[in-house]
Amino acid sequence: MAGGMVLVVNAGSSSIKTAIFDADLREVLRIDAQGIGQTGQLCIGSGAAQPCALPDHPTAFQAILARLHQQGITKGNLAAAAHRVVHGGPDLATTTRITPAVRSGIAEALPLAPLHNPHNLAAIDAITALTPDLPQYAAFDTGFHRTNPEVARRYALPDRAETSALRRYGFHGISYESLVQGFYETTGTPLPRRLLALHLGNGASLCAILDGQSVATTMGFSPLSGLTMGTRAGEIDAGAVLHLVRDLGLEKAEHLLHHESGLRGLSGLTADMRQLAETDSDAARLARDHFCYWITRQAGSMIAAMGGIDGIAFTGGIGENDHEVREKVLANLSWAGNIPNWIIPAAEEKHIARQALALLKDPAHP
């Protein structure tokens, strides 16, 4: 192990979020590259954003590594880079070292997550080009939900080659797995047998966790389905999607469903729940009510999948910080009894770093 630190990477279409963790899993530094391909800037820790030319992902990584060096962290200090990869496809589930075969598996999943996996892969390739000897690991957002039963994962479609990849994969798995593993440490309470977990942020989902394993979740084939989200439509009839495609064409329909819908579409204003809470308009109130209504409605199906409920855990930006949303959801679920509930701070990056460090120390995973 050349150094004891892990660089955790979460790459999107126009941003790269990175965090450095030491061997004791303490966060040392955070650097975000924003506006890649547009008006670029770097955010270092809690400091002000600094303008920076970032035409592409490789350049953004070069800028991040240069800033790390300025902060006293060189390539020699890094033991590994560990990536959040949204989709592991049908085969990749557990956190693993990135080999040529694993990279190929991530590439094969590109059609399943076209808005996410290409950028995850670009981040992996950029680090490979810049630091070819640095071990890299991938943690998959779909992996935690592999324990869902077949009846939960299977769509009612004929068993044909063209439908073989159409499954309810589920997402936010890294968040849910870290919540489960850190539950006792965070709350001082044993993990409830039947836990309803709510990951509420710009992307939002629910997960039914039975005996520590996912048995149902609201997201399906893609991160588009399920709850009302910041800009994503969530639950929508497939017939309505086909109607949009016929009327608007594929690209415009896809953009509408992913980027113009959800809270932004309902309010006609913003996807920011804080701004909606401060806005005195019927549309803003409808957006927040819609968000809570569909959480409650789909929570019923999660509770049914577990055969009851013993606890509720809120995580994610909205789940942790919007007390009005939490109170409304709990009030709407009062029919299920006085359910214990907790707020669990999201710790996905720390969880990814923990898994990478464990694999580095495991002789079975050289």
Results as ranks from 00 to 15, higher is better:
237 D>Y: 12
74 T>H: 14
19 A>S: 15
212 G>S: 13
36 I>P: 00
276 L>V: 05
311 G>D: 07
308 G>L: 10
328 K>D: 15
182 G>A: 13
297 R>V: 10
81 A>P: 05
14 S>A: 14
210 L>R: 14
17 K>A: 09
91 D>V: 13
260 E>S: 13
123 A>M: 06
214 S>D: 08
268 G>K: 05
333 L>K: 01
173 G>F: 06
121 L>K: 00
312 I>R: 03
21 F>I: 08
250 L>E: 12
231 T>K: 02
101 A>N: 09
125 D>Y: 01
64 I>N: 03
220 G>N: 01
239 G>W: 08
97 R>C: 09
134 L>V: 04
10 N>G: 06
268 G>A: 10
87 H>M: 07
26 R>N: 14
112 L>T: 01
174 I>R: 02
278 E>R: 11
326 R>F: 07
345 P>K: 02
248 L>A: 14
161 A>T: 12
208 A>E: 02
284 A>T: 00
27 E>F: 07
317 G>V: 01
50 Q>H: 10
224 L>E: 05
328 K>W: 03
125 D>W: 02
49 A>M: 11
266 L>D: 01
235 E>A: 15
25 L>H: 12
290 H>Y: 09
345 P>W: 01
126 A>K: 00
121 L>S: 04
178 S>N: 03
56 D>C: 10
255 H>Y: 13
104 S>D: 12
290 H>P: 00
132 P>W: 08
146 R>W: 05
288 R>I: 12
21 F>A: 09
67 R>T: 13
298 Q>Y: 14
145 H>R: 11
76 G>V: 04
232 R>I: 07
319 G>R: 00
275 Q>I: 05
82 A>G: 14
291 F>M: 03
40 G>E: 05
168 R>M: 10
131 T>M: 14
62 Q>I: 03
329 V>A: 07
327 E>V: 01
149 P>L: 12
202 N>M: 07
136 Q>T: 11
6 V>W: 03
233 A>L: 00
300 G>I: 07
336 A>M: 11
75 K>H: 10
60 A>Q: 06
157 L>F: 06
141 D>G: 10
364 A>T: 15
8 V>N: 05
119 H>D: 07
49 A>G: 10
42 L>Y: 10
345 P>L: 04
